[in-house]
């Protein structure tokens, strides 16, 4: 693909099985550093499975078997001895439904840094503030940092979750349909936020909203029944897809 772009995560011949179900088939994909990569495809095609496998969230699922390689900065993340806690600190995740912990806004953000051993009020205060600013929600919550995060609107909660994800200074942020439960205004805020996030982080997002993928992502990968059919620059994929199946899906001719 493009010349001067470095690769953050590279997958090589990845296959994933849930028992008999061959959920990912030979996925070879390079996720570019400081870019937003969107995963699109019909329900059940394996987008979330692939996203979760990027920070080993499938490890605990019984009967789940993975072959192939996932290289983060060139290092295989599935070899024995990899600290999955550390891995998930480097690769954070934001889910479809905002899921703040049932605690104060402040503690939600400070949780990760505390787990990773950061102490001292001044230091934590600074991380909380910076993370909330980074997630474009600080102004809306700065006067009630010690109120429950659950008292916030859905869009605010989702940005709290993003703040929580960036508080541990990850390198990659994975988002699984982060705006599907939000109204257009909150969605727009999160989309704008993603544009600033990619300056610091590498972002991968699953979305069912084709316009969203077109608006925000630099690269798009189209999945179909466990296969990655096409992967290209977003503008290319949405203006002149190479594979007929991609064309049929994005133009709504599917099935």
């Amino acid at each position: 693909m493009s010349e001067n772009e470095s690769i953050k995560i590279s997958t090589k011949n990845v296959n994933l099985y849930y028992g008999e179900n061959h959920a990912l088939k030979d996925i070879n994909l390079d996720i570019k550093t400081n870019k937003i990569t969107a995963f699109i495809g019909p329900s059940g095609c394996g987008k979330s499975t692939f996203l979760k496998s990027l920070n080993r969230m499938n490890d605990l699922i019984p009967g789940c078997r993975i072959t192939g390689q996932f290289l983060l900065d060139g290092e295989d993340i599935y070899v024995p001895g990899v600290d999955t806690n550390l891995l998930r600190r480097r690769i954070g995740m934001v889910f479809q439904k905002p899921n703040p912990f049932p605690m104060s806004i402040y503690d939600n953000i400070a949780y990760g840094p505390r787990v990773h051993g950061i102490k001292g009020k001044a230091k934590l205060d600074r991380i909380v503030e910076e993370s909330l600013i980074g997630a474009a929600v600080f102004d809306e919550v700065k006067d009630r940092l010690h109120k429950s995060a659950l008292s916030l609107s859905g869009g605010q909660q989702q940005r709290i979750c993003i703040a929580r994800a960036i508080a541990v200074q990850p390198e990659v942020i994975l988002m699984d349909e982060p705006t599907s439960a939000l109204d257009p205004v909150s969605t727009l805020k999160i989309e704008e936020l993603m544009n600033t996030l990619k300056e610091k982080y590498t972002v991968a997002i699953v979305t069912h909203n084709m316009q969203q993928a077109t608006r925000i992502s630099d690269y798009t990968a189209f999945f179909l029944v466990g296969e990655m059919v096409e992967y290209a620059k977003t503008e290319e994929l949405f203006s002149r897809p190479q594979d007929k199946r991609t064309e049929d899906y994005i133009t709504g001719r599917f099935g």
Partner: peptide, 9 residues
């Protein structure tokens, strides 16, 4: 319709 691909072209 926010056309894409062939439709957009």
């Amino acid at each position: 319709e926010q056309p894409v691909a062939r439709d957009l072209r």
